[in-house]
Amino acid sequence: MRFLFSNNNKTVDSTKSSRSSKGIFCEVYAVSETGPVRDHNEDSIAFSFPENDNHNLIAVVADGMGGHNAGEVASKMACDLLLDYCLKKWKQQSPGKLLHKAYTEAHETIVAAGNSNSEQKGMGTTATSVIIHKNVCYIGHIGDSRVYLLRNGSLMQLSKDHTLVNQMYESGEITEQERDKHPMKNVLLQALGTTPTIQPQILADGWEILEGDRLFLCSDGVYDALSDEDIEELLLMKRPEFALECLSATATARKVSDNFSALLITFSTGVQSTPKMTKEQNIL
């Protein structure tokens, strides 16, 4: 596992344990930056290898919102709560049930935390996550962060944006071009912590992961700066860590107005050392 975080002082953390495993395994590469405009980062990213086995993976990208820096509190809570629940119940529930229950409990906890602190009242966060188990991928999602799949050189968006503008597009009120440039494109219909109830997108049936697949989870700061064609070109790069360096350089050069964060997950066969169980980051 190679783990890349980027901010003004870029660092690389590469940690491995002595245990090895065979078959299709996951490697995770990550970047989270404040960006050239914002003064702090409200994104959080996290991942964990259940049972200390890199055949298994839980990964989350969250993009927070709220006054008094409450967005960064909400996004970190989402990452912590989703990972903690899934790890605790890993052997007791199916991945689909894990995700559904984890999102429900995370939402209730974030709402309660906001209600108990006037400076954090109304805070919320997107949360886009994947579970990899027995070579099958499952998705949990709420908000407008995204998960993409690159397979056989083609990029597909697997998550559905929970935004007012995307709803307008799906109902035929606006075109795809109008959707992508609409001034209200970031108005959310759903997020953890902001509504009485939630209906997260849970892809509970899952689909088989193939060698060579790449999953890409990102906050909206990424696709605000890069088109789907740009993202596809990045994910086609042979070296994932270089792809994320290029993402960071491009988003900065284009003066993206938001924080930007991404997790790039690759799948290979062979013998790999298993990394430490959990990594997470919120860069201020």
Rank of each mutant, 00 (worst) to 15 (best):
R2I: 14
F3P: 05
F3L: 11
L4F: 02
N7G: 06
N8A: 12
T11R: 11
T11C: 11
V12R: 01
V12I: 00
V12D: 01
S14Y: 02
S17A: 11
R19V: 11
S20E: 15
C26K: 03
C26H: 06
Y29K: 03
A30I: 10
S32V: 00
E33K: 07
N41S: 06
S44F: 03
I45F: 01
S48Q: 08
S48P: 13
E51W: 05
H55V: 14
A59T: 08
V60H: 01
A62N: 05
D63M: 14
G66N: 08
G67C: 11
G67M: 07
G67P: 01
A70D: 05
V73K: 01
S75E: 06
L83G: 09
Y85S: 05
L87N: 10
Q92F: 15
Q92T: 01
P95D: 06
K97I: 13
K97M: 12
K101P: 04
K101L: 14
H107L: 04
A112S: 13
N115W: 07
S116N: 07
Q120N: 14
K121V: 04
G122S: 09
G122L: 01
T126S: 03
S129E: 09
V130W: 00
N135W: 09
Y148P: 03
N152L: 15
S154I: 14
L155N: 01
L158E: 12
K160R: 13
V165P: 05
E170R: 04
E173S: 05
E176Q: 02
E178V: 03
D180M: 08
D180K: 05
M184I: 13
L188C: 06
A191P: 10
G193D: 13
T194C: 00
T194N: 07
T195C: 00
T197S: 13
I198Q: 03
Q199M: 13
Q199D: 15
G206M: 02
G206H: 08
G212N: 02
D213V: 09
L217I: 14
S219P: 06
V222L: 11
L226T: 00
I231N: 04
E232I: 03
E233A: 12
K238H: 14
A243L: 01
A243G: 02
L244Y: 06
L247I: 08
S248Q: 05
A249P: 08
T252R: 15
K255N: 11
V256S: 10
V256I: 13
F260A: 04
S261L: 02
F267P: 12
F267N: 07
G270D: 01
Q272G: 06
Q272M: 00
S273D: 15
S273E: 12
T274V: 11
P275I: 09
Q281A: 03
Q281V: 02
I283R: 02
